[in-house]
Every structure is written in C-alpha cells, then in structure tokens.
Amino acid sequence: MERQRVDRWLWHARVVRTRSDAAALVAKGHVRINGTRQKSPGHGVKIGDVLTVALDARVRILKVIGFAERRGDAASVHVLCADLQSPEE
C-alpha cells in the first residue's frame, strides 16, 4: 500500500476514537499535511508525510511511517507513526 486516506490513517493510528471523528476533524480544517491545511477526509497520505493535528487540548505532530489494513490495539500504533514532539517536562 502506497497511500491511505487521511481519515482512515488517523483512526488506525488511534488519534481519534472513530473514523467519523477523524473525517470531521479533517473537514473542519484541523489537520495539516506537510504544512498544508487539508479539508478533504479522502486526501491520501504517504510514508514520510508529517501531519499536524489540532485536538481539543493540544497539537500533535506525527510522521507517517506505515499503514495498516485494520485498526489494531494501542501497542501496534508505533509501527504507523513517529511522534515528532519532544516530551513535555
């Protein structure tokens, strides 16, 4: 797989609880891919893309490092993304 829909990837990476929440987050303009705001949940992401996601309480910066066919458990998230933020002190 070379690309995956951004809403599906966000759901698989457990950034949000449901795929419809992911689609709404993108549609409201709270997701940037490589610095460009996206409003289409169907926009494709590829390995190496950097996503900036504005959530209610914080902003997450994630690098796409893989894809999944199905949503896995929380332990499997590390194969999908790398968190580019330094841990808060």
Rank of each mutant, 00 (worst) to 15 (best):
P41R: 04
G35M: 08
Q38Y: 00
G44Y: 03
A57Q: 13
V59H: 03
D56K: 15
I61S: 13
T18V: 00
H30R: 15
I47G: 05
R32Y: 01
D49L: 08
R37P: 08
G42P: 01
H43S: 13
I33N: 02
K28P: 00
A57K: 15
R17Y: 00
A22E: 05
T18L: 00
R19S: 04
A23D: 01
R60T: 14
G42T: 07
A24C: 02
K63I: 08
A27H: 07
I61N: 11
G44V: 04
R58C: 09
Q38N: 02
S20D: 03
V53G: 12
L55S: 13
G29D: 06
H30Y: 04
V50S: 03
D56Q: 14
R58D: 12
V50D: 04
A54Q: 15
G35K: 04
R32M: 04
I33M: 05
V50H: 06
A24Y: 04
L55H: 12
A23T: 09
I33R: 09
T36Y: 04
V31S: 05
R32A: 13
A24N: 14
S20M: 00
D49N: 15
G48Y: 03
G48W: 05
R32Q: 15
V31K: 07
I47H: 05
A54R: 15
A23N: 01
A24E: 12
L25R: 02
A23L: 02
L25D: 08
H43M: 10
R32S: 10
I33C: 06
N34A: 06
K46V: 15
R60I: 14
T52F: 00
R58I: 02
V31W: 01
G35F: 09
A27W: 01
V59G: 08
A54D: 13
K39H: 09
V31A: 05
T18M: 00
K39W: 04
K39Q: 11
G29P: 09
H43F: 12
D49C: 08
L25S: 10
R58K: 15
P41Y: 05
V50R: 12
N34F: 06
K63Y: 02
K46S: 14
R37S: 08
V53L: 10
L25G: 11
A24G: 10
D49Q: 09
K46H: 11
P41V: 08
S20V: 12
V45W: 05
N34S: 07
A24W: 05
